[in-house]
Nucleic acid binder design. Sequence first.
DNA 1: TTTAAATTTGTGTGCGCACACAACTGTAAT
DNA 2: ATTACAGTTGTGTGCGCACACAAATTTAAA
Lengths: 381, 381
Amino acid sequence: MCAHTTVIIALSYFSLYVKKAKKTTIQDLADYANVSIGTVDRVIHKRGKVSPTKQKKVEEAIKHLNFNPNLLARTLALGQQFLICSLLPKASNPNSYWNLPKQGVEEGVRDYRDYGFVCNPFEYDLFDESSFIENAEAVIKMNPNGVILAPLFEKESINFIQILEAKNIPYVFIDGMVPDQNNLSYIGPDLKGSGHLAGKLMSTILDSSDDILVLNFVKGLENSHINTIEKGFREFFGSSQETRTGKINTLTIPSVKEEDITRELTKYYIKNSGTKGVFVTNSRAHIIAKYHAMYELSIKVIGFDMLQANILEMKCGNIDYLISQRPISQGSMAIKTLFEFFVHQKSPLKIQHTPLDIIIKENIDYYINFNESREVDQTNT
Amino acid sequence: MCAHTTVIIALSYFSLYVKKAKKTTIQDLADYANVSIGTVDRVIHKRGKVSPTKQKKVEEAIKHLNFNPNLLARTLALGQQFLICSLLPKASNPNSYWNLPKQGVEEGVRDYRDYGFVCNPFEYDLFDESSFIENAEAVIKMNPNGVILAPLFEKESINFIQILEAKNIPYVFIDGMVPDQNNLSYIGPDLKGSGHLAGKLMSTILDSSDDILVLNFVKGLENSHINTIEKGFREFFGSSQETRTGKINTLTIPSVKEEDITRELTKYYIKNSGTKGVFVTNSRAHIIAKYHAMYELSIKVIGFDMLQANILEMKCGNIDYLISQRPISQGSMAIKTLFEFFVHQKSPLKIQHTPLDIIIKENIDYYINFNESREVDQTNT
DNA sequence: TTTAAATTTGTGTGCGCACACAACTGTAAT
DNA sequence: ATTACAGTTGTGTGCGCACACAAATTTAAA
């Protein structure tokens, strides 16, 4: 203890102000309570085997000295690893939507690498349930500490979840969710709200007599939550003051092949020439934007997410609004949520809605690369 | 080395998959290069005194084994403290703008507490240069490791900065900046762009014949960057396709007292009854929103930032658009930037523009409390 | 050739914590 | 009174790293 004091004096001589922020350690607690650090340790971790007298003294010391354990030291001592498995749809190409949450997860893991966080990504085919099942089994085999899941296939997800719960593995949903589950948290948009917002935006750029098309580019079962989005969209116009005279139609194109899409759109537009606005319920607004440009149609377009292709079309003026649900943040927040849960022992909110960013030509540049802004890796000084 | 191997086997027996993520340590490097950790240390820190042969061997080991130092251990060993001083305007009340960056700074510091980050906030009077000078001197006296500065008083800021540079203390600007300085980074909005965006939004809700008022609530020298914002606003209409026939006037009210404001507004509106939209160049849009409500004027309002008062007025329909420049993020990013610089040795981008979020009634809820969403502090399991 | 002085290497300590283990207390059984 | 045995309490080790210092090696000087 004597030596300890000397050190503090020597340091405070060196830099007077800095050292007063000295944090209290378990040794400080032990000194204060006149016990050994072993006893302090027992109190902190509730291991029992401590006499009531000392128990109380230590607890008082913790309060009095405002003790907060140094998580760096704790992590170092425990040497634990946190294996996180993500189970997300496979991105069809380098610029497609599902790269973004994945990128966010990677960023998050990088932040917590030293805390022993490791991520093992699994990807399933968006159009193939059996691929989901296979990958889910692979995840289970890894016996991870935590799971990040985009539960696009509801039924299969529930099966998966049940195994996770049996093995006591916490999981968070991102991008979409299955209701009434014991997930640690859901991180993603309020789907209904996003449809509602799209409705509002559409109403500001159209007259009430204009016809609207709700366009679903979908294949197979991908649409688990698209229904919710469209419902929100229609609800907006239902509850709106202004009485619309224009129609709102829905067109679902169950294909992503260009010729199919072109044919279906042409069929639709020839029949519905009063269409003045299109709401695309996923991230593929760029497809119809290109179509409009090709046939010189001046039809308003609202879609989701800042894919490279969407950014381009917006800058050309072929997309009017994009609603971003911060896919990258979803990934990094999922990791951060698990980190807080495991390391800081904090239970997250069960629902963490990501903001719905309204993107137009005038503010799009500030969103591009915002997440990557700190990735410059140049040694300083 | 033998003992070491045994440990790995024993652990991998226990949990097969987790352990394969074992990270390489300086001891691994030493073993690989047939030197002691001391030599490895010298190579890593470029302390010299290493023979070329071993130098190369160690460097090869670093590459071959993909060594990344454990920053937790490093931080723990160094036991260093990073004292950050923030120098921001004082918030006039608990709900005013300047609480938000401050809050962000606090959040950031909490994240990096264990890394020895400590913040000492200084606040100056927004309307009093001498208060700035006093506080700047106090900051210098603290001899901090880094500084976060909102340089509202340009001249005084430059003086302050020069001292910082002489003492080799890195500093970041938030919210506003002084051009051509050696700041580590600027974190905040693109001011001109924010005016531009406001112009765009205004144009979507007004006819081209409507008159517009640009309203500056200002006192003293607070307006260093308000000029830039207004310039961006006017530039939008200058460059816009549509030829406006309506006027754009500017009114500057050099007071924050209610009776002054009411009088000036009334004087203005009586003379300019064609006014259909108001652009408030700072966070005080709620003031004029209340005025409009009182006198039953249906005039569109666009302003900045999600203060409690602005949120309320927006929900009542008295504010049409709010542009948020993410003040909380600015604070936390400033800390994160300094953290990356000090701990990870990463130089940040010199300009980190925060996104300009477009807030309307339909998406405002998703922004409220988004930053606080992970603050639930309940022990789990 | 011996000694001194660089130069290059290796070792020991501590950062704050968790955990295994050793060393104490006291009480009940023999 | 002696042993046994819980119930307590204290000590030692290592996590990965930085840094002070000691040891070993080479080189220069005498």
